[in-house]
Design a protein around this nucleic acid. Structure first.
Lengths: 168, 168
DNA sequence: TCCAAACCCTTGGATGTCCTAGTATATTGC
DNA sequence: GCAATATACTAGGACATCCAAGGGTTTGGA
C-alpha cells in the first residue's frame, strides 16, 4: 500500500467544486467518487485473498453462484443476469474456469441455443475454501461499523432498485 | 439497460450466506457486494455522459485534476498519487489525451526524471464542458437522498482513512 | 408450413487496471 | 567523487469489461 496522502483527495475535490460555484452538486460528486474509490480498495483486498487460490473476483463470483444452485449448473445467460455482467464477461470467465478444470460446459437438454455451466467436484471444493478465506479475511474485517453496514445495504439497495437492477 | 430481475440478487446472496451458517459475515458481504455493483452502475452512467466528448472516466478524472491545478500542470507521479491509481494507468491516460491534443508532456525544469502533464487550451475547454455535463446529468440526479449522501461520505470516508488512503 | 424476428453464445477489438521489468536521473553514503 | 540505493516513467503482459458483429437455434405470425 502506498503512503497515505496528507489530505483526503475527495474532500479536496469537493472544495474545488464549491469554489467553482457547483455547491449544489458537490456533495453527491464526493459521495459518488468515494464509492468508486472504495470499490477499488475492496476489490484489491478481495483479489489479494483469492490470488493463492488461482482465482480472480470475477471467476470466484461465478463459482460461488454455481455452488448455490441446487444442481450445481446454470445456463450462461442466467449467470450473466444474476451476476449483472455482460454475457461476454461470463464467456471469458467460463473459458478460464474450464481450463482450470473447475467448471465444464454441457448442452442444454431441450434448448439447443443454451449452454449449461456445471461445477466440477474440484470447483465445488475450491469455491468452499475460497469462500471461507473471504469470510474470515475480508467480510469479517470489513472495516465498516455494524450500523454502517446496515446503512450501506439500505442506501445502495434503494439506489440499485431505482437504477433498474431489480423490481421487487 | 436489461430487464430488472424479479428479486434482488444481493439479498439472495445474503440469504444463501445465512443458510450456510455464515450469518456473522452475511451483512458485510452484502454491503461490499452492493458497493461493487453500485460502482458498476455509476461508472456506466458516467461513461455514457462522457462518451459524446470522446472521454472516458479515467481520462476525465485526469483532465479535471489538471484543471484545478493552479498552473494547469502536474508531475505524473503527483497525478498518480492524487487519483490513487497505478502510475502505468496515468501513462496510458496521458498517451491518449495527448493524442487527442488535450494535454502535453513537458520536462520538469529541475528534475530530469519527472514529466509534467500540461493542459492545452482545448483540454481546459473540454474539461469545463464535460464537468458541466456530469454535474447536470449525473451528480444533480445521483439517485441518493440528501441525508444518504452525507451518510455515504461519512461511512466511506472513515473506511478510506482506515484503509490508508489519507492520514488527516 | 415457413420465413422473419428473437434469443444465445462466441469472436474480435477497444479500454482500463495492475504487475513486473527495464532505462534514466537523483540522492545518499562512504 | 563515486558507487549503491531510491525515484520516475514507460514497455509488455495478464485480466476484466463493454460493444459490435456473426453463426446457430427457436419461436411466432403470415
Amino acid at each position: 500500500m502506498a503512503t497515505p496522502l496528507p489530505r483526503d483527495p475527495i474532500a479536496d475535490a469537493r472544495l474545488n467544486w464549491e469554489r467553482h460555484g457547483w455547491s449544489d452538486v458537490a456533495a453527491p460528486m464526493a459521495a459518488i467518487t468515494a464509492i468508486m474509490r472504495t470499490q477499488q480498495l475492496l476489490l484489491a483486498r478481495i483479489e489479494g485473498v483469492l490470488k493463492p487460490f488461482g482465482l480472480t473476483f470475477a471467476r470466484y463470483e461465478l463459482l460461488a453462484l454455481l455452488s448455490f444452485a441446487r444442481s450445481g449448473a446454470l445456463p450462461m445467460n442466467k449467470a450473466s443476469a444474476l451476476l449483472q455482467v455482460h454475457p461476454t464477461s461470463v464467456t471469458n470467465a467460463v473459458d478460464r474456469l474450464q481450463q482450470a478444470g473447475l467448471v465444464l460446459r454441457s448442452p442444454h437438454p431441450t434448448d439447443g441455443r443454451t449452454t449449461l455451466i456445471e461445477l466440477t467436484p474440484e470447483g465445488r471444493t475450491l469455491a468452499k475454501r475460497a469462500t471461507a478465506a473471504l469470510n474470515t479475511e475480508v467480510f469479517a474485517q470489513s472495516g465498516f461499523a455494524e450500523q454502517d453496514v446496515d446503512q450501506l445495504i439500505r442506501i445502495l439497495g434503494t439506489f440499485r432498485r431505482n437504477a433498474g437492477d431489480f423490481s421487487e
